Simulated scan of single mutants.
Amino acid sequence: MQWLKLKFPFIYLICTVTAAAWANLERDPNGYLTYCPCLGRFGNQADHFLGSLAFAKGLNRTLILPPWVEYRKGEMRSRQVPFNTYFDVDPLKDYHRVILMSDFMWHLADDIWPESERVSFCYIVRQLKRTIKNVRQTQPNNEIKSVFVASDANHMIGELNAALSRMGISVHRLPEDDPYLELAILGQSNQFIGNCISSYSAFVKRERDSNGFPS
């Protein structure tokens, strides 16, 4: 019982300090900005972070710091490592306002960014549009009418059709996934946009490089 008497004040102290820290997380009236650290490994993610930090400062918005994404040998899934595992956050605040994504999601997101209103922007759609426009300008005889998508998860057919409909382009996939047939189609297509961390995309890229095809 004596141990319990000593322990309870310590627990109360931790709870009090934690609650006070949460109370200091006030809403930024200028808004927030974050980024997806999924385009590459640590070097690319660090470069992405630096660019986003400068962008957030330019917009005068608080930067939400997402976890680092680690791809470890022998593991099928990536690991989400909190930003402050490797770097102190407080020195960044001398340059501009930042907040850990975990703090933002736990203590601010429900009011600022309710789940029903959450929409993400996927860069691949903009990159796809840019590639199509470039082909139409440089290769007028190579008119693009359709886009083929290969994926082991979400093909985003509805989203891509909606994004490209104004360009007169339809988006398609195989009725059933067939990685060998998809590999052949992607290897011989006029243009190819791949995922830079995908070994499957790497196979396609090597084949296209050997044939002198653009990627």
Rank of each mutant, 00 (worst) to 15 (best):
S116Y: 14
F104T: 06
V119N: 14
E117V: 01
I112N: 10
E117H: 08
Y123N: 03
S102R: 10
R126V: 14
R118W: 00
D110F: 03
R118E: 00
D103S: 10
F121H: 15
Q127K: 08
W113A: 07
R118M: 00
D110I: 02
H107T: 07
I112Q: 11
L100P: 07
M101N: 13
D110L: 03
F121S: 14
D111R: 10
R118G: 00
A109M: 06
I112R: 09
M105L: 09
L128I: 07
R126W: 08
S120T: 12
H107P: 04
M101K: 12
M105I: 03
I124H: 01
K129A: 09
L108Y: 01
I112F: 11
Q127V: 15
F121I: 08
H107F: 15
E115C: 03
S116Q: 14
E115H: 05
H107C: 09
V125C: 00
A109K: 14
Q127S: 12
S120N: 13
P114T: 09
Y123M: 07
E117Q: 15
Q127E: 10
M101Y: 08
D111E: 14
D110V: 05
V119M: 13
D103T: 04
F121N: 14
C122Y: 11
P114Q: 08
C122F: 08
S116C: 10
F121Q: 11
I124N: 00
R126I: 12
